[in-house]
């Protein structure tokens, strides 16, 4: 366990701002940015980096979800049903995490990023919104006002088993500091027919509960560096506040492109570390 100096606290706060910004815009909690930062720039192990990231994810999830209008776009019913599976997966993930080496989690982290970007790239031009507000959306579907199409849109949830399996997987990988949105948003959007904005808002709400499991686990293992965690959370809050006020207006397609760029960069970083080492034992 390290005792952080003020420079490290300052840089962590700044990284938190960037993570919060990305998290609010993309609905992925910002863990994909913060975890590598804490590992590579501050020198924490994956357990501590993941734990701190998860705490910030609870903060991002809470603020972005509480923004007026956002809870209406989020699908509360779908979110709470899937949350059952992400939480169960997260508990399993917390126990599995203790069994594998940092090198293994780095491989999993890297490949997760590549896999998700491939799915996102494949679905870049597709949209799931149905411009017919009278559509019967079923027990789990939803409707909301969409800025891109300028009207009320409705959607049904397709392939529920896929959503459930993805949720369990998202839960399991969450202990690495990911919250699971990075798996869930593309899956809900690409395979289950949930429009990007609804998928992001729903996932954003779920992330908090999923992240909570890993965060509690990290507390228990004594992996939370208080000063860094506090700085990261406050940074993330500032970043996500800014992000929320930008995200509502920018186009959906640019979200997807930005997400792919972020994911591939992070994957490259991890593969580089695994292959060439990072100068640490």
């Amino acid at each position: 366990m390290i005792t952080p100096d003020f420079a490290q606290i300052g840089w962590t706060a700044l990284a938190g701002v960037v993570a919060g910004l990305l998290g609010a815009v993309l609905g992925i909690g910002g863990g994909v940015f913060l975890v590598p930062f804490l590992q590579f720039a501050i020198g924490l192990d994956h357990g501590s980096a993941g734990g701190i990231s998860l705490i910030t994810i609870i903060a991002t999830s809470s603020t972005t979800s509480a923004t007026p209008g956002r809870l209406q776009v989020a699908n509360l019913r779908l979110g709470m049903v899937l949350e059952m599976f992400t939480i169960t997966g997260a508990v399993a993930g917390a126990f599995l995490f203790g069994l594998v080496t940092d090198r293994t989690t780095d491989w999993i982290f890297g490949f997760t990023m590549v896999g998700i970007s491939a799915v996102m790239l494949n679905r870049l031009h597709k949209r799931n919104v149905i411009l017919n507000p009278t559509l019967d959306v079923g027990p789990l579907g939803g409707r909301f006002h969409d800025y891109d199409s300028g009207g009320e849109v409705a959607y049904r949830v397709k392939r529920m088993p896929v959503a459930i399996v993805t949720s369990v997987v998202a839960g399991i990988v969450s202990r690495m500091g990911l919250g699971g949105g990075v798996v869930q948003v593309p899956a809900l959007n690409s395979w289950c027919g949930v429009p990007m904005r609804a998928a992001t808002a729903t996932s954003s709400l779920m992330l908090g509960a999923t992240a909570m499991i890993g965060a509690i686990d990290a507390f228990w293992r004594g992996q939370i560096v208080l000063g860094l965690a506090a700085a990261a959370v406050l940074g993330v809050l500032v970043g996500s506040w800014v992000g929320v006020h930008v995200a509502g207006r920018s186009a959906v397609k640019s979200h997807k492109v930005l997400m792919i760029v972020v994911l591939l960069s992070v994957a490259a970083l991890y593969f580089y570390k695994i292959i060439f080492g990072d100068g640490r034992p």
């Binding site: 705490i55 809470s62 509960a209 909570m212 507390f219 939370i224 208080l226 965690a229 506090a230 959370v233």
Partner: peptide, 11 residues
């Protein structure tokens, strides 16, 4: 610690 615990309790 108090701040982080409150945060964790939100969900």
């Amino acid at each position: 610690t108090a701040g982080l615990l409150v945060l964790t309790a939100i969900p």
